[in-house]
Design a protein around this nucleic acid. Structure first.
Lengths: 122, 122
DNA sequence: ATAAATTTAGTAATCGTTACTGATTATCTC
DNA sequence: GAGATAATCAGTAACGATTACTAAATTTAT
């Protein structure tokens, strides 16, 4: 996978924030640097980078998908009030082997999401 | 919350399967029993039952939301090949208190989803 | 430098989900 | 039980996130 100017820009935007943005937020941010950027380009590159493990995708019970440029294994907390997604420093759990044993399949990864009210919304 | 005929039917459909169906699958199943059922009714009741904790909603990296009539705390495995969602018998992890301490918020629940290839797709 | 392959901007289409409305059904009070 | 009140429904339109498409531009390989 080569790195086009737009793909580089997307990565740089994503690495520069810890806010776990949505595709649309990233799009708006990229438009500030280059107003001709296309929303389709954002989605296509988000999919590519997710597939190759360069970035993380976070699915929650709320509206649209969030992305994370911080790939070191970690978990997330989602506020049911304001929808904000934040990182946790909980230690990764090591039970993928157990899941493989139980399912007979192969495990590539896992996601752990906590829901509740953040300090502000509580 | 009263239980209308349609809501009862939805619950019965969901309790009768362990397949973690999507809204549309449930809709088709209910249509077999009552062809006049409305898709809006399915979605409205899924939202109501999820909010009140009678059923579970499962968000994955694949297409649409899945639902689970089995509410005893448990985790899920999602196959990246066929998209099938299956139950795991892993013991629930008890770290919500730790998350509350770290975030300063309140935790209402958590979801743990493993991704990989199932026995068939591997 | 030229040819081949990839990526893009822009736009149209898709699909899951939600919102709306007037009709129907359930519940509540007498 | 009859009538009033509230909840729920079927049907359909609207919405918003995401994907698909196409011709032009850019990158990469020769």
């Amino acid at each position: 996978m080569g790195y086009s100017r737009q793909r580089e820009m997307l990565l740089s935007v994503l690495k520069d924030t810890r806010s776990h943005p949505t595709a649309n937020w990233i799009y708006e941010e990229m438009r500030k640097r280059d107003p001709k950027i296309s929303l389709g380009t954002v989605y296509r590159n988000l999919a590519l980078l997710t597939e190759s493990g360069v970035i993380l995708r976070i699915d929650t019970e709320h509206d649209s998908v969030h992305y994370d440029g911080f790939t070191h294994p970690h978990y997330h907390f989602v506020c049911n009030g304001c929808g904000e997604v934040s990182d946790l420093s909980i230690d990764p759990i090591g039970i993928e082997a157990e899941v493989e044993r139980e399912t007979g399949g192969s495990v590539a990864g896992h996601t752990l999401v906590f829901y509740g009210k953040c300090k502000n919304c509580k």
